[in-house]
């Protein structure tokens, strides 16, 4: 039974799938936003990643997990709290503090002498705590919808950052002809237009540690930058190395080209 369903779905998707739009209105194309980390030399705006982490922690983390992230990632090279003083992110004081602010059972296999799971403050090597124990629980708390894991969300959506930013800032009054189910909100950037996430951000809902004014746009940009970094934490190293490799190959190519001219100089071809 399950197999025939999968088979039917595969065949449907094979050729005849069209995205069903719940509304007359087309899905809006995302804004073209400028990002500090755009382009071959772009780097992450560290302040923005730090603020973005705060947004994630205080707002998004109550619904969305980030299973691929460890606290230590925050302090590693290229991370928001990286510091020369602590080349090993596990020693990073800020990271240790963040981790220790969560006390819970981190691992069901970590048991005391009575065999009961241990509750303890977090360590830099622990994973970001997930808000729900499993998918069913997450759905039960969100009117049946599943808040996806955000570790890779920027890579997992076409138009990446621009889509995310547009989505977070793009909630609108629902048009009269829309038939939103209870618990759905109108957002023309979301495929179909009806999203089961209430607008998560609004002016002033948090107070930034660095005093920046927490406008909707500011928070959307910051949290998106943070999520970009989380999805591609080695981007800066990657681009730096790319520049070196290209310079190296260019010089190599010129030398070999000169050798080629030399070798072939007296041969007609």
């Amino acid at each position: 039974m399950k197999m025939t369903r999968i088979f039917a779905a595969a065949i449907a998707a094979l050729g005849f799938a069209g995205t069903a739009a719940a509304f007359e209105g087309e899905q809006h194309a995302p804004h073209e936003h400028h990002w500090h980390h755009d382009g071959p030399f772009g780097t992450y705006d560290t302040q923005a990643v730090q603020r973005g982490y705060q947004v994630y922690q205080e707002v998004c983390a109550s619904c969305h997990s980030m299973d691929l992230m460890r606290f230590r990632n925050l302090g590693q090279q290229g991370g928001p709290f990286a510091s020369e003083e602590f080349p090993n992110p596990n020693d990073n004081l800020i990271v240790m503090q963040i981790a220790a602010s969560y006390t819970r059972v981190w691992d069901q296999d970590e048991v005391n002498d009575d065999g009961d799971p241990v509750e303890r403050p977090g360590l830099p090597s622990d994973a970001f705590p997930a808000p729900f124990a499993n998918e069913q629980m997450a759905r039960a708390s969100n009117g049946g919808a599943y808040p996806p894991d955000l570790s890779l969300i920027v890579k997992a959506r076409s138009h990446g950052e621009n889509y995310l930013y547009s989505l977070l800032t793009g909630y609108e009054e629902a048009p009269a002809d829309s038939h939103l189910a209870p618990g759905q909100y109108y957002n023309p950037y979301f495929p179909g237009g009806a999203i089961a996430m209430a607008p998560p951000l609004a002016d002033g809902i948090i107070e930034y540690a660095d005093g920046t004014e927490a406008t909707l746009e500011q928070m959307a940009e910051d949290v998106t930058t943070f999520l970009s970094w989380a999805g591609d934490p080695h981007m800066e190293t990657r681009k730096q190395m790319g520049v070196m490799v290209l310079i190296y190959l260019l010089i190599f190519a010129i030398l070999v080209y000169l050798a080629y001219r030399q070798v072939w100089a007296n041969v007609k071809h």
């Binding site: 071959p40 990657r238 681009k239 190395m241 790319g242 520049v243 490799v245 290209l246 190959l249 260019l250 190599f252 190519a253 070999v256 080209y257 050798a259 080629y260 070798v263 072939w264 041969v267």
Partner: peptide, 25 residues
Amino acid sequence: HPYYTVKDGFAIIVYLMIFAVFVFF
């Protein structure tokens, strides 16, 4: 050798450069 080792070599390096643009950027 050396006529085509050097010609192939040059082509390989140019192709690797395009490859590097994708791998790194």
